[in-house]
Write a protein that binds this DNA or RNA. Structure first.
Lengths: 216, 216
DNA sequence: CTATTTTTTTAGACAAGACTAAAAATTAAA
DNA sequence: TTTAATTTTTAGTCTTGTCTAAAAAAATAG
């Protein structure tokens, strides 16, 4: 498993989370920041290794084996993120690039010991679930904040966009994982909403609400 | 700095610890487990980057910049080894391969926070000194056990050979870092010696004594 | 149902690192 | 100091992963 192969698997896995059916070559190229022709080559390789199924012009789909490998990389990524935040005082908007490197370290023992050392965490600092050893992801069916109606309440458990700028915005507004949130008012016209967190009320745009996961 | 470049720098740095003057292309090839022709190519590249000086047929020598970079990689390697042993329950003969991967992770903050998290350790689990941020290695001028005379005492602070088989031998004999050792008897003929560790006396060959560092 | 646009694939090139085989420079030996 | 042995370098290939340009297939429009 080369670095590049792992990154492709991860990308395809993540796109599959959002899209149905075969993943288009172009979609992969965009995610990977590369050209479609490069993707074609890699797809051929991964396909030969039995990690994904693809038919010319029909898109790619991970096999069970491919999903397992991808979930394992994501498991490593997220465990390292927990480590960086909990043990090394990183902020949640700083961890991504480093975790992107650490996720490729190869050692079963390392990752399982790390898991134990961290107390078998269930979610990473962005609230995303951490797959277990077997590649299973606990799916608590969280919803986006934007889908809540007036007077509904929930707990913030994750973010969809984990770009540094977004995370910084959240910090500034006092929006953080674990906080209870209640929708006070919702503007049907632009889907902006007034929310309350810890007795403080303020407006957020649909864009923001669309990137925050809530556990009801 | 590619993975390969870093590994070459590290190898040359380590050879320089033992050998004087310019390091021969062949010596590097042997250490790197590769062919002399490959080394020639890489030397050219590192030389152009100002990381080492070399003259055709005269061998290579790291520049100050090259030494700094190499020491930093070794710093990372050894800090990760401490982490693996102290926090993740690895034994000292298991850490090398994983540390070999971790040493290439790029993040200033990561390594400095790790250093702090571990309490600024001075030596790795094999007793080798950990370079500081500036690439300086504290040289406590430790000696090899083989150089001690009858009735001399010291503390075991390191090993020269850190192969798994050697480390396992040491564990079995109860020889470990930090243990006090006294030379009871020395056989001039073959340099084997009888030593005492914790009231227990036993013989070790010159080969063994030649691979254990002692702080007097 | 043809024509155009979009998507995907092929073909051919390139850079990094490695290898083999052979040439050249250096060192050692006679 | 001329020959022999060793070390180092050059020349040419290979693989991985990338790219551009162009061809081919599929989707969409009129």
């Amino acid at each position: 498993m080369t670095l590049s192969e792992e990154n492709y698997l991860k990308a395809i896995y993540h796109i599959s989370d959002v899209c149905e059916g075969g993943i288009s070559t172009n979609a992969i190229a965009e995610k990977m920041n590369t050209k479609a022709s490069s993707v074609t080559d890699m797809i051929k390789k991964l396909s030969e290794k039995g990690l994904l199924n693809y038919k010319r012009y029909k898109g790619s789909e991970l096999t069970e084996k491919g999903k397992f490998v991808a979930a394992n990389i994501i498991r490593k990524h997220r465990l390292w993120e927990v480590f960086l935040v909990e043990k090394l005082n990183f902020t949640w908007d700083e961890v991504h690039d480093v975790a992107e490197q650490l996720e490729h370290i190869k050692s079963e023992k390392l990752i399982n010991q790390l898991d134990e050392f961290l107390g078998f965490p269930k979610r990473d600092p962005h609230g995303d679930p951490i797959p277990d050893k077997d590649g299973n992801v606990s799916d608590n069916a969280d919803v986006l904040l934007v889908t809540l109606h007036e007077n509904e309440k929930g707990i913030i458990v994750g973010v969809k966009d984990s770009s540094s700028s977004f995370l910084k915005y959240l910090d500034k507004q006092g929006i953080a994982l674990g906080k209870k949130v209640k929708v006070i008012d919702k503007e049907p016209f632009d889907n902006s909403m007034k929310i309350r967190i810890k007795k403080e009320e303020f407006m957020i745009s649909q864009q923001i609400a669309n990137n925050i996961y809530i556990k009801k």
